[in-house]
Amino acid sequence: MPDTKPTLLLVDDEPANITVLMHLLKKDYRLTAARNGLEALERVKSQPMPDLVLLDIMMPGMDGYEVCQRLKADETTRDIPVIFITAMGEESDQTRGLALGAVDYITKPISTAIVLARVKTHLTLKQAREALANQNQILEERVKGRTKELAMAKDTTILAMATLAETRDNETGNHIRRTQYYVKALAEELRKQPSFTSLLTDDYIEQLYKSAPLHDIGKVGIRDSILLKPGKLTEDEFEEMKNHAVYGRDAIIEAEKLQGNPDSSFLLIAREIAYSHHEKWDGSGYPNGLSGQEIPFSGRLMAVADVYDALISKRVYKPAFSHEKASDIIRQGRGGHFDPEVVDAFEHINDEFHSIARKFAD
């Protein structure tokens, strides 16, 4: 059975002093000894490392003060308690030793009761500190685990809602995934501009990426005869189709109510995107005819991503356009349909859009 007794390192250049301490402490502790400072620094790194050091001050070469100072400067040994046992009994000597990091100071000639009591006390304190540190680590791990669970729950909520929308639209395919990556690419490009640096943090871009799949969640409220119509919609049908932006917003609001404060909800960006991605820079979009900076930034990003992907995708009422033709249409919409700065970002990463489209092609 392994010896679980605490280990003490006894440091003194006088063999007689070490013999006295060993006789006093051997019953309750594992003991190791050193005759000088250098030997003490070597022994303290051996296994098992000592749980406490009893250290003489007056030694030839490296004195006890320097040994203590070196122990406290080393990250691997700084938490080992050091008790000075010395004939130097002046208050200034004690003050200096405690200032260097020692936990106690015992003067010679030693008292058996005092040595035993002080050693036991400081070992108990060391064990308590270690237990508290372990408990803090356990709590930190639990917090990390809980945070990870919450993040997974958020992601699962978004995925479930997006999948619901996808089941209603048999032309969606990889549209959801492509638009996710388009939005992220646009945001990362715009972040290079000083005016967007503070807004486009890593966390905000991640939320944009995760929220993008919900942009058409409102289509679950559109009648199949309109949503799946194999041809161009009539004016009345198109008016009804526009309602998917409102339906999407309302569905997300209902989900947000379960989160508590809607304005701090992780679904806030998703709500903005669902409700505003059909608004146009010149005010001619829907559902509210917002213009310019009135349109949420997330909606302005999604407008470019959504239209580009619709253009390169085959629909029952149109063939798939080439990347070049779709890019030209986006450029022509600069300042009309789209935020000029977002279109400029699109221009800079035009090839990246093309790569995303090919990687996640239907």
Rank of each mutant, 00 (worst) to 15 (best):
T179N: 11
F353W: 03
H354I: 08
V82Q: 05
T112L: 09
H23D: 13
D93I: 06
Y29P: 03
H23P: 01
M62R: 00
R178N: 01
K27Y: 12
K318G: 09
S284Q: 04
E341P: 03
L54V: 07
L186N: 03
D362V: 12
D362A: 14
V115L: 04
M241R: 07
S291K: 13
D282G: 04
M49W: 01
K219W: 03
D362N: 14
Y182C: 00
Q193E: 15
E66L: 12
D28I: 06
R30Y: 07
M1A: 15
V343G: 09
K148I: 00
A34E: 01
N261W: 11
I205A: 07
K280Y: 15
E294H: 14
L21I: 12
K210V: 03
R70T: 05
L159Y: 14
E130A: 07
V53N: 01
F360N: 03
A160E: 15
Y247M: 01
Y286N: 01
D224G: 08
R249S: 08
D263A: 15
I253M: 11
T76K: 14
L31S: 11
G97L: 04
P15A: 02
P48Y: 07
S211A: 14
Y275M: 04
S298M: 05
A117G: 12
G173E: 02
K72L: 11
R358E: 15
L41P: 09
S355Y: 08
I106N: 04
R358G: 14
T7G: 02
H122S: 05
Y105K: 01
L31Q: 02
L186H: 00
F353Y: 06
L116T: 12
R177Y: 09
I205E: 03
K232W: 11
I176C: 04
P81H: 03
L125T: 12
V246L: 12
V67W: 13
H23M: 10
I106Y: 10
